Simulated assay, not measured.
Amino acid sequence: MNFDWQGRYDGDEALYQRIFQKVKSGTQFSDIKEGDFALQGFAVDEGVKRNKGRVGASKAPDVIRKNMANFPVVQADFNLLDFGNLECLDGNLELAQDNFAENVSDILKSGGKSIGLGGGHEITFAHYSGMRKAFPDAKIGIINFDAHFDNREPENGLATSGTGFWQIAQEGVLNSLHIGIQRNSNTLKLFDTAHQLGMNYILAEELFFENLPRLYIEVNRFLESIDVLYVTICMDVFNVAIAPGVSAAAYNGIFADPAFMSLYRHILASQKLKALDVAEVNPEFDIQERTARLAACLVNEVFMV
């Protein structure tokens, strides 16, 4: 663990504790106990670069950590191990993804829950690959909060931040539900690919309070159909007013309003949840660390279940 976790100190008693007081340095995955959270930073944006996006997301993990540090601890048995950041050397994205996947597999086999801080959304293929190594016979479901499908075919054989779900589909049946998809952010080809690959989706325009009963039914149907769950959040799903620091800003993105938070918390409450990450936080374009703060809040929600 390279990051120096610091925050407001009110005391050591359980009622006063904040997250920074409970983080331990992760050195060996064998130290993980059942139910522990294991955190890794994916300090990589080579996939964003290849996808012609705004680079800078590789600097995000520690900024997100800083914004996580002061949240109160609300669960008595809360334990968080920080295994530091994984980087991409010499532009070798594939090696970085493989290394992250190996770590995820070790975390899950030890009984922990995997938390990833991106980095670009190329973290998706890495995180999923780790789950597949840990649960080779399970039906893995992915819920992706994103404005984009990320189902492009690799150009010249090179994966990017936008190819993750296409890559996953090439390895077997894809079980995914995409929430927050924007009509104006995906070409007809990408919608067609989504249909061909069996990608379920909820458009951004469908995410409003009065529509929650129908959305709960759709989410529940998906959760019932899988064995284990991985949730990934691309921060460009949110409106640029609350998430300006992303690789592709969304001027009509969704908000973290009661409708979104109700649905999100419902998903996190699933006993099948094994892994979660946030991606595409770009500190170079952030304002007052709004995007990093929102990402930290979304990660913190899983610690409160």
Rank of each mutant, 00 (worst) to 15 (best):
I233G: 11
C234I: 03
C234Y: 06
M235W: 08
D236C: 03
D236Q: 03
D236W: 05
V237W: 07
F238G: 06
A241N: 07
A241Q: 06
A243M: 04
A243F: 03
A243C: 01
A243N: 02
P244S: 06
P244R: 04
P244Q: 12
P244H: 05
P244K: 03
G245M: 00
V246N: 06
V246L: 02
S247I: 14
A248M: 13
A248C: 11
A250W: 01
Y251T: 04
Y251G: 13
Y251E: 10
N252Q: 13
N252K: 05
N252P: 09
N252R: 03
G253I: 00
I254T: 09
F255R: 05
F255W: 13
A256I: 05
D257W: 01
A259N: 01
F260I: 04
F260M: 04
M261D: 08
M261N: 15
M261P: 14
S262Q: 13
L263A: 03
Y264V: 00
R265K: 10
H266I: 01
H266Q: 14
I267C: 11
I267Q: 06
I267V: 09
L268D: 11
L268S: 02
L268T: 08
A269K: 07
A269V: 08
S270H: 14
S270E: 08
Q271S: 13
K272F: 05
L273V: 15
L273P: 15
K274P: 10
K274I: 15
L276I: 15
D277K: 01
D277Q: 01
E280P: 09
P283C: 02
F285R: 04
I287A: 13
I287H: 11
Q288K: 14
E289R: 07
E289M: 02
E289P: 07
R290V: 11
R290G: 13
R290M: 09
